[in-house]
Amino acid sequence: MKEIVIISGKGGTGKTSIAASFAAIAKGKAVLADCDVDAADLHLILKPEIRRRTEFRSGHKAIIRKNRCTGCGKCAQVCRFDALHDGTTWDAYPEVRYSIDPVACEGCGVCVRVCPADAIDFPEETCGEWYISDTRFGAMVHAKLGIAAENSGKLVTLVRSEAKRIAQEEGADYLLIDGSPGIGCPVIASLTAADFALIVTEPTVSGDHDLRRIAGLAKQLGVPAMVCVNKWDINPAATREIKALAQGHGISFAGLVRYDRAVTEAQRAEKAVVEYCAEGVAMDIQGVWTAVLDAINT
């Protein structure tokens, strides 16, 4: 079983459209994982039927127990995340001077530890949900991070490892992972120790710039990568430059995907591009998949 991650560096280059088409082409042979947990879209095309739903609990948040707080302020002195705010007045609890901003709180627990009055509670947080589902192309694991929740990297790791377990149980040939943009925590969690990465970029100054950084990350993590240029005909000269750039980084080229309104139309029809049409852009994506398989199998 080969684990293939689709990433991009820059957002909005077409990762999910390409991942959905790969899922359609590899129907019955692949398990799918949407690791873009804070802006997940793959389910809009794959229409999963949820088989199992599980709460994702991770980390803690500090909460003031108003009936115990004496207003001494030790918590505010030690907090490095600017989460304890002075000047709160509660009619029922005149001694309480501080409040904790749940958004700023990093859940480190230092305030809990130093509070002499045991006035700070530290419950575990529910940060979202994750699902095991069936789709018309195969099993899928996906998630929804809670609003303003943290620990997206841990949720990605969980989604990925569950998907991997299912892929192994089912004897699938591929685990297809739709990644998130960027190069930080969730991307590192989806890329580390994968068999292969397909980087989807676009022929723009941003696409070029961001490709360098995501290619650097793949190299640092020792994950072999290929690059494909989506909407290549928006700027053919920039496409040529990206091709040269990829070669310079020792990354092979997986192909070009043309700009085509059929991609948005397919999205509106809740279909993968290769289901929606057979020609043009669908052929381009098919070509990229073939190039990826060739690279994996050699």
Binding site: A148, T264, E270
Partner: peptide
């Protein structure tokens, strides 16, 4: 992009947030 910690950190002190979207699903 996204809705997790890096975004929250960026928006926390804002007086106004303009959300940019495109008319696709």
């Amino acid at each position: 992009p996204g809705t997790s910690c890096p975004v929250i950190t960026s928006l926390r002190t804002a007086d106004f947030v303009m959300l940019v979207t495109e008319p696709t699903p």
